[in-house]
Amino acid sequence: MDDVLRTCHAAGWRGHCELTRATGTDWAQGDSGTVTAKVDLAVPTVDASRTDRTVTLSAMDPGASDTASGVSAIAYRLDDGDWITYTDPVVVDAEAHVLTYRAADVAGNVSADKTIEVEKAPTGPAPAPVATKAPKVSGTAQVGKTLTAAPGTWTVPGVAFTYQWVRDGAPIARATARTYRATVADAGHRLAVKVTATKTGHTSGVAQSARTAKVVRAASKTRLSVSKRTLHSGQKLRVTVKVSSSAGVPTGKVRFTYRGKVVRTLTLKSGAVTTTFRPTRTGKHTLKVSYLTSSGYRSSSDSTKLPVR
């Protein structure tokens, strides 16, 4: 039988083998030859990544230099189950599991077993989102002006928001939009917005903005008109007063002053009132009407000079 001598020299993960064949018993007289073959001594590396309850495996072969080498397969097993060839990400159920995995290359090198643990899924709702940046209210705190809420920043991505505006801490009925127009009832009070963050599977999170400054009354405008610009002593004069505001229709009372004296006080109806006078003293006299401050509007006035003959 032929005697065979094999000598393998490894250099890092690559190397070569020299195969020498001698015929007969006399080495010096035998025929010999040398064949060089590529050697892959590197073990493939395999890694696992996890997103929620899905495990993804990947592998590479540092000894692969051509198409004759490389990773041939990745295998895994769940707990003490059978080994399974990996083809797609592994989705595990809600129980706790240990997933063991390894990889092999074309040359037959097999990596050491590695594991990744997936804990048992929580049985109740996930923790509530928490605001890392509080909600904020922008706009002017004035009757008739619109305020806008920014929901803030939360720890859980993809949450949905609902809004509840509050006056001095108490919820305002039907004020559940992102914007809110301050009303007469808000004058003199502080407003804020309470934001609720919700997401399926999570307990709801709640955060409230800082309070605004006290809501100020809206500006009003009073306009006085008379039926005659000049009249005779004792002649009837019809006087109409209209009070308006960009914030709404003012309510409350107006006070009439003639020749420096208060002559009557009347209540507005739909922002207006009409009355009559019969001036008797001749000369040019001032008729003034003043809208008295109400809960939601600032006072205003108007006047006219009445020539009486």
Rank of each mutant, 00 (worst) to 15 (best):
D2F: 13
L5K: 15
G15R: 10
G15I: 11
E18Y: 11
R21C: 15
W27R: 09
A28W: 09
D31M: 05
A42T: 08
V43K: 14
V43P: 06
T45H: 13
T51R: 15
V55A: 07
T56W: 10
M60H: 12
M60N: 10
G63Y: 08
S65R: 14
S69A: 12
G70F: 08
A75E: 15
A75I: 12
R77L: 05
R77G: 00
D79C: 06
D79V: 06
G81K: 01
P89S: 07
V92K: 01
A94E: 05
E95D: 13
A96M: 12
V98K: 09
A104H: 07
G108T: 07
G108F: 06
N109C: 00
D113W: 11
D113N: 14
K114V: 09
I116S: 08
I116V: 12
E117Y: 13
E119C: 11
K120Q: 15
A121G: 04
A121P: 01
P122K: 03
G124L: 14
G124H: 14
G124F: 12
P125A: 15
P127H: 12
V130C: 04
A131I: 03
A131Y: 00
T132D: 09
V137G: 02
K145M: 12
T146V: 12
T153R: 12
W154K: 07
W165E: 00
D168W: 04
I172D: 09
A173P: 05
A173T: 11
T176M: 10
A177V: 06
V184P: 01
V195R: 05
T196W: 03
T196A: 03
H202N: 10
S204A: 14
G205H: 05
G205V: 01
V206P: 04
Q208H: 05
A210E: 10
T212Q: 05
K214N: 15
V216R: 14
A219C: 11
R223E: 14
L224A: 08
S225R: 14
V226H: 03
K228H: 10
H232W: 10
G234I: 07
Q235N: 00
Q235W: 04
K242H: 06
P250F: 09
F256A: 12
T257R: 04
Y258E: 00
G260L: 07
K261A: 08
V263Y: 13
R264P: 00
R264D: 07
L266Y: 05
K269W: 09
A272L: 10
F277D: 02
T280W: 15
H285G: 03
S290V: 12
S301N: 05
S301C: 02
L306K: 05
